[in-house]
C-alpha cells in the first residue's frame, strides 16, 4: 500500500444520527457495505439504521483491526501477524466486558453488516454465557419474555428432566464467579 494514493473515505451514519468517517478499506470488511460501495454510492452518507453509535464504534474497531492484520500479511516479516492462540486471546479481549444487551446489539449489527468474524465472536461469547445457566437466569440476562403458562413450562421441564438434574459442577462453578 503506497502512501501517495489518497485514502478514500466512507461516511456511515448510525441510527441515532452520529456520522462516522472511516477508510474505505475498513468499511469493506463488512460485506454488506462492500457490496454497496461496489455499486458506487460512496459519496452519500450510508445510513445504518439498526445500529446505535456505541455499537457502531465497536464494530468499526473490529474492522480496523482486521484491516491492520490483512494489510501487513503480505510483508515478509510481519509484526502484526497472529498465531491461532493470539487470535483467540484477542477475540476474548475484544469481547471482554461486553454485557448481554450490548452483545445482542452487536450480533444484530454484525449480522446486518455481514461481518462473519465478528458474528462468530459474538455467537461464541453468547454460547459461553448461556452454557451453564438455567432458563430463568437466561431470561433475566437477555430480557426474554416467558410466554409459557406454568403448566406448559412444567411439561417441558418434565420431558427434559435429565437436563435439570443437579450438576455437581454447576454449584461449584457458579459460586466461584
Amino acid at each position: 500500500m503506497s502512501e501517495s494514493t489518497e485514502k478514500k473515505m466512507v461516511r456511515l451514519r448510525s441510527s441515532d444520527g452520529e456520522v462516522f468517517e472511516v477508510e474505505e478499506s475498513v468499511a469493506k470488511v463488512a460485506k454488506t457495505l462492500q457490496d454497496m460501495l461496489e455499486e458506487d454510492c460512496a459519496d452519500a452518507v450510508i445510513p445504518i439504521t439498526c445500529v446505535r453509535a456505541p455499537i457502531l464504534t465497536k464494530v468499526i474497531d473490529y474492522c480496523k483491526d482486521q484491516v491492520m492484520i490483512s494489510s501487513s500479511s503480505s510483508t515478509t516479516n510481519n509484526p502484526n501477524e497472529r498465531t491461532e492462540q493470539e487470535r483467540k486471546a484477542w477475540g476474548q479481549k475484544f469481547m471482554e466486558g461486553v454485557d448481554s444487551s450490548t452483545l445482542c446489539e452487536l450480533l444484530v449489527a454484525s449480522n446486518f453488516l455481514n461481518i462473519e468474524g465478528l458474528l462468530n465472536l459474538g455467537v461464541d461469547k453468547m454460547v459461553s454465557m448461556i452454557q451453564g445457566k438455567y432458563p430463568q437466569e437466561i431470561r433475566d440476562m437477555f430480557n426474554v419474555v416467558n410466554d409459557f403458562t406454568p403448566e406448559e413450562e412444567e411439561e417441558i421441564r418434565n420431558q427434559n428432566a435429565w437436563a435439570f438434574e443437579r450438576d455437581p459442577y454447576y454449584k461449584k462453578r457458579s459460586s466461584s464467579k
Binding site: N111, V127, I130, G132, P135, F148, N160, A163
Partner: peptide, 24 residues
Amino acid sequence: PDEVLTEILGRLWKKPSCRCKCVS
C-alpha cells in the same frame, strides 16, 4: 434474527440446549 439465534443454540451442548427449550 432467527438465523443468529439458531447458530447460538446449535453450538450449545446437549444439556444446556434442552434447558433452553424452557426459555420461551
